[in-house]
Write a protein that binds this DNA or RNA. Structure first.
Length: 566
RNA sequence: CGGGGCGUGGCGCAGCUUGGUAGCGCGUCUGGUUUGGGACCAGAAGGACGGUGGUUCAAAUCCACUCGCCCCGACCA
């Protein structure tokens, strides 16, 4: 088998999973974010896909295959032709017609549904596909962790009733729990935002890892879990004296850090006044967003307030007459949206709308006309759980799956309706459920490796057993190895046979690197006693057995491993 | 897109400051000795230095532009 291993860390790789995927001969880069899967890597991906298939079929999913090349019109119907922007790969055919290389397939599925689904009797349906998708990521990274061409399992549910729709969602949720458990991943299910996909109350399957690109927030005590973008934290209590408003000369710069040092206080006493610009039909309108100095505004949360962007420093100067860092809504009639954590706060410090001056003693109820208190702040370290009050944990994680309740966003936009029992035309209730296949593989490597290489879980290992002969010149040993190989194959065990005639050191190193969980080592050292050695990759445990007993022993070990992960 | 870094035999790197047509380790090939953690000896092949243009008698080295890749940020299912 073609397994080109590398002794040294490739120049382009930084994180363990990326480095190991290249060193173990799983993948090779063709262009930024575009990879070839070599035989060993492809075997692993196929194992992962097989597990996904089994679990999708189990909930009644029907596999289909959809085109990657899709006409522009279909994306224009839902508006995503424009929303997706540069992330969508676009191509033009010889007749100058626009196409997209599909980044996901809601539109195609909805198109099938609107043509073929007539009646509530045709529902429910779960359709899924495992195929290549394209996204022109701003910045691909981590090898196939975030690629531009990648394999995704996407499934779509079509339902007539709200109950059925919830049921389809829960079926997927349960299937995903089984899938990721079988893949040997430790994951957390967190509430998340739908983003461009649409839908509310979506959930993400997150594998905690220092190399994860997402951040999750969860409670160490209760069940609260959410994506950092939408998580809510309760700031620590800060009791401050209610004082009259007073203007203070603050010649130290306008940053939270500088001002809190100047007043010798904690950042939380500061009121961060951020001027944003709201794009409306009638033009641009300034609005203030308020959070305390220890918190940042969540760009995701403020989507609910409309089309917002931070004001430029010139705009701030023009509207407020002061620089960023010295502004506040005090004395203006600009609309104000304050974070709910600010309600009732007093004794705060904020800008005085004059360079080098701040107010202290700000009582938010008394001094600022707040239009609405709403959740706009990101969680900050030290915040506590909104459910139970315990401490929140903030951690980075790899997003391996995301399930969406889409509702009727696509069916309404594209006219995918069915005739209900009462004879009325209604839009189909949809859901969409994705799993990143390569990303799952990378998450597995990221959480299943040691200093020598990968350590595959039984469920996805490219081979279950590796037979290696340390001395391929020794005829007896080779005979026994050949025999073991054949016997194991007969028992439906997937065996890789390392019969390369190279030095023992190289073979043993490579064998560790590629991470097959059970390694049969045939070397002269133990052979003298008529023994062969079984090495458990994960623990480095070595068991010496008589060669006649070896097959049975290996079967037992594999069985134990499988039981342990089920 | 902003900031940083890198591009030199298959892989990993040195050389660049102070210009004089390239070097190391690993790998590869041949022969031999080896075979429990990347072993050894002898011999050999292989690059004109990402690309383009410029400066110069002379450019891997200096200058300009450009392409590619990685990292941080912004953004993002």
């Amino acid at each position: 088998m073609f397994i080109p291993t590398l002794k040294e860390k490739p120049r382009e790789a930084e994180i363990p999973s990326h480095t190991l995927a290249i060193r173990a001969g799983l993948i090779r880069m063709v262009a930024s974010g575009v990879y070839s899967y070599l035989p060993l890597g492809w075997r692993v991906l196929r194992k992962i896909m097989q597990i996904i298939r089994e679990e999708m079929n189990r909930i009644g999913g029907q596999e289909l295959l959809l085109p990657a090349l899709t006409p522009a019109e279909i994306w224009q119907e839902t508006g995503r032709w424009y929303e997706y922007g540069k992330e969508m790969f676009r191509v033009r055919d010889r007749k100058d017609k626009d196409y997209a290389l599909a980044p996901t397939h809601e539109e195609i599925i909805t198109d099938i549904a609107r043509r073929e689904i007539r009646s509530y009797r045709d529902l429910p349906q779960i359709w899924y596909q495992i195929q290549v998708k394209f996204r022109d990521e701003l910045r691909p990274r981590g090898g196939v962790m975030r690629a531009r061409e990648f394999i995704m399992k996407d499934s779509y549910s079509l339902d007539a009733t709200v109950e059925g729709w919830q049921r389809s969602y829960n079926l997927h949720r349960d299937a995903y729990i089984r899938i990721f458990t079988r893949l040997g991943l430790e994951f957390k299910i967190v509430s998340a935002s739908g983003g461009i996909m649409g839908g509310s109350e979506t959930e993400e399957f997150m594998v905690p890892s220092p190399v994860g690109e997402d951040t999750i927030v969860y409670c160490g005590n209760c069940s609260y879990k959410a994506n950092y973008e939408i998580a809510r934290g309760i700031p620590p209590k800060l009791e401050l004296e209610d004082k009259p408003l007073r203007k203070v000369y603050t010649p130290v710069g306008g940053s939270v850090e500088e001002i809190s040092r100047f007043f010798d206080t904690v950042p939380q006493q500061l009121l961060k006044s951020l001027l944003y610009v709201k794009q409306t039909d009638s033009g641009k309108q300034p609005i203030f967003l308020l959070v305390d100095g220890a918190h940042d505004v969540s760009e995701t949360k403020i989507l609910k307030l409309g089309d917002l962007r931070p004001a430029t420093s010139d705009e701030v100067k023009e509207w407020m007459g002061a620089s960023i860092g010295y502004i506040s809504p005090i004395g203006t009639d600009i609309p104000v949206y304050a974070d709910i954590g600010l309600k009732g706060r007093k004794g705060l410090i904020t800008g005085a709308n004059e360079d080098l001056y701040h107010y202290e003693g700000v009582n938010i109820e008394r001094d600022i006309k707040v239009n609405e208190y709403t959740d706009i702040a990101k969680v900050a370290p030290g915040d506590s759980c909104p459910q139970c009050g315990d401490k929140l944990i903030i951690e980075s994680a790899i997003e391996v799956g995301h399930i969406f309740r889409l509702g009727t966003k696509y069916s309404e936009a594209m006219g995918a309706t069915f005739l209900d029992r009462d004879g009325k035309n209604k839009p189909i209730l949809m859901g969409s459920y994705g799993i990143g296949v390569e990303r799952s593989m990378m998450a597995i490597i990221e959480t299943h490796h040691d200093e020598h290489g990968i350590v595959w879980p039984q469920s996805v290992t490219p081979f279950q057993v590796l037979v290696t002969t340390l001395n391929p010149e020794n005829y007896d040993l080779v005979q026994v190895a050949d025999n073991l190989y054949k016997e194991l194959m007969k028992r439906d065990i997937e065996v890789l046979y390392d019969d390369r005639s190279t030095s023992a050191g190289i073979k043993l190193k490579d064998d560790d690197l590629i991470g097959i969980p059970v390694i049969l080592i045939l070397g002269e050292k133990v052979w003298r006693d008529g023994m062969v050695e079984i090495k458990i990759r994960a623990t480095n445990e070595r068991i010496k057995v008589k060669h006649e007993m070896c097959v049975d022993k290996v079967l037992n070990i594999i069985k134990e491993m499988q039981d342990a992960t089920q």
